[in-house]
Each structure stands twice: as C-alpha cells, then as structure tokens.
Design a protein around this nucleic acid. Structure first.
Length: 572
RNA sequence: CGGGGCGUAGCGCAGUUGGCUAGCGCACCUGCUUUGGGAGCAGGGGGUCGCCGGUUCGAGUCCGGCCGCCCCGACCA
C-alpha cells in the first residue's frame, strides 16, 4: 500500500495523558485514538495489527476443532438474572431500559448466551463435545480505565466455550485450549507465562491465566525458576522466610504494656521500640458481610484481600476508622488481637512452630499503647489461613526454591466452569443411559488489543515500536527518498510489485516529505524490514535494514527480494 | 468510591497581583528555496479560554456549582 493512500496520522510528541510506553507509541504511530475514557478508535494501522492477531487466533482455534460464530452484545436482563449474575456483578455491567421498559444490559462476557444457545440446541450426548467461539465486543464499565488500550470499557475479545458430557471431557477440552493458547501467544511473538489463577466471578473450578511480563501490567505473579510453579499473587502460596533476628524474649515472657505515643505504623512502632517489623503483628479490622473480623499478618507481610475473601467466602472491605474504634475501643494504629471478642484469622506465617513459640508485639487496643510478649495460643486463639501476599524471596510451596515476583499483563484466561451456567439455564443432554445430565462447560478468553499492547511493551526502543513480524501492520516498509525522482519511482515500483507478487505486505512511503521525516515514521511504526530506495537507485542498488537493529546494507535490486526475505525471517 | 492533578487553536504548552487586539512551538494553507535523519524564508487561516451561574466598569484570570480527562489507591476479566 502506498503511504499517500493510507491514513496514518503520526505525531512527533508524546500525548500528554499517556503513561505506558505502548500507549504513547500506539498513539504517536497512528495506530489508535482515544474517543472517550476507556473507549478507543482503531485506526487503519492499529486495525491491521488486530486483524493479524485475530487471524492467528482463528487458525489455532479452528485447528482444535472450534467453530466460529457471532453472538449479540445486547441482552435482555433475564438471561443474566437466571444465573444470578445480574445481581452479583454490580456496577461493572452497563445497564439500561429499552423503550418498553425492559431491563437490558450490554454483554461483558458471554457464558449466559452460549449456555442459553446450548440449552436450546444440544439434546444428546451424541451432540457433544462442542467448541464454539467468537471474536466479539465486550462492555465493562471499568471504574478506572488506564494504560491506553490495556484497560478499557469496550473491547474485542476472543471467547470460546466448550460443552462436554463430563469432567473428563472438560479436561480434554481444557488441555486442547492450553495447546492452542500456547501456540497463539508464541506465534504473536510474546514472552508469556501460564499461571494458576483465581476463578473470581466466573465461578467454577480450575483456572489459569496467560500473562505477559511488562512493567505496565496490573497483575503480579509469583514464579519459581526451579520447579516451574507459577501463580497469580491473588492465590500464590509460599512459605515466608524465617526472620533472621530470632527474638530474644522467650515464649514464657509475660505480657506487658508499653507506651507508644503517636506510633501507629509498623515502621514507626518498630523504630520506636528498636525491634524488627517481623516481631510485630499487623492487625487489620475488616468487615465481612455484616460482621467485623480481625485479620493478622506478620509485621513485614502484606495481607492480600482476595485471600481473605476466599477464606471467608464473603466480600470484605477494610473497616472505617469509626468502625475500628467501635470494635476495638482504640483508634487505627493501636489495634491488636489480645482480649478482642471478634473472629480472628491469622496468617499461616504466624502459626507457632514446634518448640518455643515466638513472642510478638501488637497493639493493645488502648490509645498510644502496644503489648509486648504476646504469644499466639496463650494470649489469644486465632484460626489460621493463608492470608499474606507472596513476596520475592519466599519459598516455593512445591519445591522450596526461592520465588520471584513479576509484573504482568493478563492476555488470556481459561476456566473450568462445570455446570455453573448450564444448570440454571437448563443446558442438559441425555446420556447413553437416557439420563438427563447438565452439560459441563469451560470458557476461554483472549484480548487481541492486549496482545498488541503487550507486544509493544516488550519490544520497542526510544525511536518507536519493533513489532514481532507475525503481527506487524506491514512486513516491509519501503521508503522512496525522493518522491518526485522518476528513477527512484521506477525502482520502487518494480520492487514493490515484485514483493507483492511474493505475498509480502509492503508499505511504500511515496509521500513528498523530507527523508528524515520518513525514516522517523518508519522507526515509529516499526515494521520488521526497511528498504530504502535513494540515490543509489540509478545503479540499481537499494538499502535494507532490519528494524530490530543490525547493519544497513546495500543490495543489488535483482537480489533485493531475497535479501529482504532473509532479514524478515531472521526477525523475531 | 477516597486522594491528587489538569482542562487556553488539531497536538504540546505559556499567560492567573483582574485591564485594552489571548500568545509560543509543532501541525495546517500559499509562494520561493531546499531534499539521506522530523528543512529555511516570507505570507496566511484557525480560539464559545470545558460548561453554567455569580462578583466587577471590566473575568482566561476571582467565587460557587457541574462536566470531562489523567495519575495513585480501592475494585476488576
């Protein structure tokens, strides 16, 4: 395609409201434009990238026997009421009424609709298994869109759903999806991991997420380099390091109050009393449903709220300062477990080891006062649960090696749903024995725009994007230095035609601009191979150069196409 | 939802002790020159200063309300 015929509005300066590298570069390169908060326009270049990603997804989905279809995004509320999610989901779903006053929603995912279709059309175990997918818009009223195209309110998603007669069939479908997903992300040129994940509001059993490491990511995963354990920190298990400063006070030390005026935070208290944070108990008041609970972690640890939620099987929120006072009698900063009558859940790292129990310092539930010599099991009796967020350096729960933490972008997820959606929507089939059985479902998502953004995050330099060759908007960026030079035009046209015949997607920059302008645009847009037709065109010589770096070389026009192929193939 | 910031030309910004015709860079249009790393000169077009209300002789500037956008947190596939 000629650049003069392509709408590619590039910008020299970074947009003021962009933070992430991918956001800046995709705007500057003329790939996307923001329309409103969390709502983006895909310009021709951006749409080409998305299309290439979608083609890879289609090929791999079709290869595991999945069938593409297209579902509505405008739903009457009743399907969502049937599964209970209409009430469970809350404000994240766009809701409105149609002219007849009926409650409607914009689809944020499609489990209900696929299960609805299955319930109408699948009758017999002979109809199973089925795998259906679509590449369709989703709408989610995000509280805070961010990161350009990374977290938005309207986005394209490949979602597939599997329908099996039993758990064994689901397992097979699940494994097939793992294969397809591994191939999709590898073909898109991403560095990625498959990690254990929380099934969250999707419900159901086993779940994994596909994660692309990037500092722009919003999730964290814990990874073991030794055995391969990898999990979202929302549920990553780990063994905390034993503090090096084993406390000097023996376990039979008496409880004693100590005055700690204005010392509220772990840092303040540990500095004031000259003790390590790990000798403190961090006491956090949460409201679970109606009841207050006290959650305890070691002073050098952080609570992960999702873990508390999962353990209590109830939504939780931090108590307001007034509530803390009501429950404990003290203000935030002086809360502790001793003498409280609320339910107390302590992190596993606080469980007394064999032998002499450790003593801790905790809030005394009294203004400006802490308690020292606190012994768990003697002074209070908590329940124990895994509550704390895994930290870099913790021990792997499987092999004991040291865990590392990585910031990641979630690019895909897979869930075993079981009968969570098929039961309420009546998606059942008759088995061999004539028994009615709920269909066992799985659901599987991929965000194409997140793949694009993750690719940019992982592969760019200070001049622009370096697209993986499989998803670049064009394979070859052909720069004609002098748009008006008839010899250069003739050489460029000849090369363009030759490359087109060989099946390459070529962007031919025939604009009447200064050379520097065109070089800068090429580097910004980031196609894998750049070809320059300039002065040497009279000698039938052109220049080739890989975007990723490497030598710029002169090649005779006749061998140009071959050299371009070599460079393209050598690109990542 | 809590905290912070911003809103002035298409983009990036200056201008706020209240003052006359609102400015700079880039982009855009015309002409000439230029042409291997985001050109030069000359001329030119483009603004409800986010919106509504108030104070004032006079508001981009002060006051009140609202809206939009961004960042941190909470939440979230």
């Amino acid at each position: 395609m000629r650049a003069t015929a392509l709408f590619m509005p590039t910008i020299k300066e970074d947009p003021a409201d962009a933070e992430a590298a991918s956001h800046k570069l995709m705007v500057r390169g003329g790939f996307v434009r923001q329309f409103a908060s969390g709502i983006y326009i895909m310009l021709p270049l951006g749409w080409r990238v998305i299309q290439r990603i979608c083609e890879i997804i289609r090929e791999e989905m079709n290869a595991i026997g999945a069938q593409e279809l297209s579902m509505p995004t405008l739903h009457p509320a009743d399907v969502w009421q049937a599964t209970g999610r209409y009430d469970a989901i809350g404000q994240e779903m766009f809701r409105f009424k149609d002219r007849g006053g009926r409650d409607m929603v914009l689809a944020m995912t499609h489990e209900e609709l696929f299960a609805w279709l299955a319930s109408r059309e699948l009758r017999s175990y002979r109809d199973l298994p089925q795998t259906w997918y679509q590449i369709q818009l989703k709408f989610r009223d995000e509280p805070r869109p961010k990161g350009g195209v990374l977290r938005v309110r309207e986005f394209l998603m490949k979602d597939s759903y599997t329908f099996d007669i039993d758990e064994a069939g689901l397992e097979e479908s699940y494994v097939k999806h793992i294969g397809a997903y591994d191939r999709i992300f590898a073909r898109c040129g991403l560095e990625f991991y498959r990690v254990e994940s929380d099934s969250g509001f999707m419900g159901g059993g086993q779940a994994h997420e596909y994660m692309a490491p990037s500092s722009a990511g919003e999730d964290k995963v814990a990874m073991c380099g030794s055995c391969g354990y990898a999990a979202n920190v929302e549920l990553a298990r780990s063994t905390a390091r034993t503090p090096t400063s084993a406390n000097a006070t023996p376990g039979d030390a008496a409880l004693r109050e100590v005055s700690t005026p204005e010392q509220r935070t772990i840092d303040e208290v540990s500095a004031f009393l000259h003790i390590e944070p790990s000798q403190l108990i961090k006491s956090l008041v949460y409201i679970a449903g109606e009841a207050a609970v006290l959650a305890l972690v070691r002073g050098d640890h952080s609570l992960h709220e999702n873990k508390l939620t999962r353990y209590l099987k109830s939504e939780v929120r931090p108590a307001h300062p007034e509530e803390v006072k009501e429950v404990t009698g003290a203000e935030v900063g002086f809360v502790g477990p001793v003498g409280l009558s609320v339910r107390i859940i302590a992190d596993e790292a606080l469980r007394p080891p064999g032998g002499a129990p450790r003593t801790y310092t905790a809030g005394a539930n009294k203004e400006h006062t802490h308690l020292q010599g606190v012994v768990i099991g003697r002074d209070f009796e908590p329940e124990f649960a895994d509550l704390r967020e895994a930290q870099e350096g913790d021990a792997c729960p499987r092999c004991g090696a040291s865990l590392t933490m990585k910031q990641v972008i979630e690019i895909g997820n897979i869930f075993k749903l079981g009968s969570k959606y098929s039961l309420p929507l009546g998606a059942t089939v008759l088995d061999e024995a004539g028994q009615e059985r709920p269909i066992i479902m799985g659901s599987y998502g991929i965000g194409p725009a997140r793949i694009a953004a993750a690719a940019v995050e992982q592969s760019h330099d200070d001049r622009g994007i370096i697209w993986p060759k499989s998803i670049a908007p064009f394979d070859v960026h052909l720069i004609q230095v002098q748009a008006k030079d008839p010899i250069q035009t003739q050489v460029a046209q000849g090369l363009y035609d030759r490359l087109a015949v060989e099946g390459w997607q070529v962007l031919w920059d025939d604009r009447d601009e200064r050379p520097g302008f065109k070089f800068a645009d090429a580097e910004l847009i980031g196609c894998p191979v750049r070809v320059t037709v300039g002065k040497k065109a009279v000698d039938r010589v052109v220049e080739v150069e890989p975007r990723a770096g490497g030598a710029r070389e002169d090649v005779p026009l006749e061998g140009g196409a071959d050299r371009i192929r070599e460079l393209w193939e050598a690109s990542s």
